[in-house]
Amino acid sequence: MSAISPCARWNIVGTTIAGTGTAGNGSNQLDYPEGLFIHKPTNTLYVVDSFNSRIQSFLLDQSSNISTIVIPNLRYPSRIYVDDGENVSTIYATDSYPLYCGVQWVVGAPSGVSLGDKFSSCRGISIDKEKSVFLTDWLLDILIKESPGMNDSIVIAGKPKECNSTSKHFCGPNGIFVDQTSGAVYVADTWNNRIQKWLKNAQEGITVAGSSNGSYGHDAASLYSPQDVFVDIDTSVLYIADGYNGRIQR
C-alpha cells in the first residue's frame, strides 16, 4: 500500500535538509538544484546540483547536511533516477553535451557510460523493469528509448522537430515517470500544458491532466508549463510540478 494518502494535505512550512539557502559550491551548498531522488533502502537524498555540474548525495538520517559528490564534472545535469542492482546502485542522469544527453553511472565507479547518443537536450530520464532507459529531448520534442546492450537510441513517441498539440506530438517534453508494472510512460508535455500517458507500444498519447489542445490555465483543472510528474501507482494519483502556476497539483 502507498504511504501517502490521497487525502493528504502538505505542511506549507518547509524544513531545509540540504543546502544552506545561499548558492555556492561548498560541500554543504547547492547552486540551482533542479532534480532529486530519494533512495529509500539507504535513506539517501540524491540532488542534481545543476550549476555546480554535479550530483550530490545527502544522508537523511544525520543531523548535518554535508554532502558527498557522487558524480562530478558534468556539464548541465537536470534530472536523475537511481536504480538498485544486485550489490550496488546505478544513477541515471540527464546531461547536455553535443553528442549525448545522459549518463549511466554505477555508484563508486570512476566514470560513467553515455546515453542518448546523437541527442543533446534531454530533460527527463527514467527506466523500466527491463532496464531500458527513457529520455525526453526537450528541443526535438521526442521521447527516446535505449534498450540494454543496444548502441543506439530509438524514437518511440513524438515527431522530431514538430512542436504540436495533437495526440501524436509533444512540445517541449520534460520530466517523465515510468509505470514499472504496465510499462506506460507519463510525460510532462511542458509547452502543451498537459501530462501525456503513452501506453507501451502505443502510437499516440492520452491526456491525463491539463488541456488536450495545448491551452494553459490557472484553475484546478488546468496546467501552465508543467515541469515534472510522479504517479502513485497504488492510488493512481498524479503529482505534477505546475511550473508557471507555482504549485504542485494532485
Rank of each mutant, 00 (worst) to 15 (best):
residue 86 E to Y: 11
residue 220 A to P: 00
residue 110 P to H: 07
residue 122 C to V: 03
residue 179 D to S: 09
residue 24 G to F: 06
residue 76 Y to S: 03
residue 170 F to K: 01
residue 153 S to N: 04
residue 206 I to G: 01
residue 89 S to V: 14
residue 72 P to C: 05
residue 20 T to R: 12
residue 74 L to A: 01
residue 219 D to G: 15
residue 94 T to C: 03
residue 181 T to I: 14
residue 218 H to I: 11
residue 86 E to A: 14
residue 80 I to H: 04
residue 79 R to H: 12
residue 39 H to C: 12
residue 166 T to N: 09
residue 123 R to V: 04
residue 182 S to G: 14
residue 249 Q to F: 12
residue 136 T to H: 01
residue 118 K to Y: 04
residue 146 E to N: 09
residue 178 V to E: 01
residue 53 S to R: 10
residue 197 K to Y: 10
residue 15 T to W: 10
residue 199 L to V: 07
residue 180 Q to L: 14
residue 60 L to P: 14
residue 51 F to N: 09
residue 24 G to D: 10
residue 72 P to L: 02
residue 201 N to D: 12
residue 234 D to G: 10
residue 224 Y to I: 00
residue 236 S to I: 10
residue 237 V to K: 11
residue 139 L to Y: 09
residue 244 Y to M: 08
residue 161 K to P: 02
residue 40 K to R: 15
residue 169 H to I: 06
residue 21 G to V: 09
residue 97 Y to A: 13
residue 73 N to C: 01
residue 50 S to F: 02
residue 54 R to K: 15
residue 73 N to R: 07
residue 176 I to P: 00
residue 136 T to E: 03
residue 2 S to T: 15
residue 159 K to P: 00
residue 3 A to P: 12
residue 100 Y to E: 08
residue 199 L to R: 08
residue 111 S to I: 06
residue 229 V to M: 04
residue 56 Q to V: 15
residue 105 W to E: 07
residue 179 D to F: 13
residue 74 L to M: 09
residue 10 W to R: 12
residue 152 D to C: 00
residue 184 A to I: 05
residue 84 D to H: 13
residue 192 N to W: 08
residue 143 L to A: 04
residue 22 T to R: 13
residue 186 Y to D: 07
residue 44 T to G: 03
residue 119 F to L: 06
residue 67 S to D: 09
residue 67 S to F: 11
residue 181 T to N: 09
residue 37 F to G: 06
residue 155 V to Y: 02
residue 244 Y to P: 00
residue 175 G to F: 00
residue 50 S to Y: 01
residue 52 N to W: 05
residue 197 K to W: 11
residue 62 Q to N: 15
residue 102 G to C: 07
residue 153 S to L: 04
residue 108 G to E: 08
residue 183 G to E: 08
residue 198 W to I: 15
residue 25 N to F: 11
residue 150 M to C: 04
residue 186 Y to M: 06
residue 141 D to A: 02
residue 190 T to H: 01
residue 228 D to C: 05
residue 72 P to M: 00
residue 98 P to H: 09
residue 95 D to K: 00
